[in-house]
């Protein structure tokens, strides 16, 4: 018992202060929102669009679909002009799929707004989610899971992952939705009482990720009404937390 108490003191208090306090330390090379310096592009150069594994870049305008983007470095490596870079902007979550289509000129994304008044009243201080992995690779799942650890302590916002859809206010879905999970996902969604929210996390759940177009998957969540899209492969835990907090009105939408 003495050893447990001593270790408890040594380990210290570890919960981050975000969103009231400072951000947790983020990796130097964090791949946040990608930025294109169009003025550096050679005319008619299409290299970035050609190497993109998921066709997320519109060849002419370089408009980027952040829902498809894997935040990999293929385009950055291929660009001879060094026109593409990753910003450290971790805020990426949106309410509408079309808000993930970002033009080069666009300075700020249309970040997720809070839930409608009735839903906010219900879920703003208590949001119970059932997580469903539908072909996810366990990376999105792991970084959703990490939010429940003492470092992030999701519970302090009233958000909790629960064991049954019957106890949940909504689903948090990861993975490209394999054919073999379609039915189970639909039944889980049906088992959640109305009103309910659907949150999709990661490139796979938004648009199929690297599995887009394969016969065995359904290109992400297509058949359920989605309330929040959190892009990334996988999104950084802070990106996920930021999205969830915006949804329940705990972070002001500055844009």
């Amino acid at each position: 018992m003495y050893q447990e108490i001593l270790t408890r003191f040594k380990q210290g208090y570890r919960t981050i202060k975000f969103p009231e306090g400072p951000l947790p330390p983020l990796p130097e090379h964090l791949r946040g929102r990608p930025l294109f310096a169009l003025d550096k592009c050679a005319p008619d150069c299409r290299l970035c669009a050609e190497v993109c594994p998921v066709a997320a870049i519109e060849p002419a305008t370089k408009a980027l679909d952040l829902g498809k983007c894997l935040f990999c470095t293929d385009c950055v490596q291929a660009c001879p002009a060094g026109a593409i870079s990753f910003s450290r902007d971790y805020r990426l979550s949106v309410r509408r799929r079309e808000d993930l289509l970002v033009s080069v000129e666009q300075q700020e994304m249309v970040l997720a707004a809070e839930l409608e008044r009735r839903l906010l009243k219900l879920f703003g201080r208590s949001l119970k989610l059932r997580q469903v992995s539908a072909g996810g690779c366990n990376a999105c799942e792991a970084d959703v899971n990490v939010l429940s650890t003492i470092g992030w302590d999701l519970g302090r916002f009233g958000i909790q992952v629960v064991a049954s859809p019957r106890h949940a206010d909504g689903l948090l879905i990861t993975g490209p939705v394999t054919r073999n999970m379609e039915l189970a996902l639909l039944k889980t969604w049906e088992a959640v009482a109305e009103p309910k929210v659907v949150i999709v996390v990661g490139a796979c759940a938004i648009a199929g990720g690297p599995y887009r177009g394969l016969a065995e998957v359904g290109d992400g969540v297509q058949k359920l009404p989605v309330d929040l899209y959190i892009p990334g492969c996988p999104p950084h835990p802070l990106t996920i937390l930021d999205g969830l907090l915006r949804l329940i009105g705990r972070i002001e939408n500055r844009s």
């Binding site: 490209p176 999970m181 189970a184 394969l214």
Partner: peptide, 10 residues
């Protein structure tokens, strides 16, 4: 098999 995405074939 619920997670089958067809990786080998792809």
């Amino acid at each position: 098999g619920f997670q089958h995405r067809g990786v080998e074939k792809a």
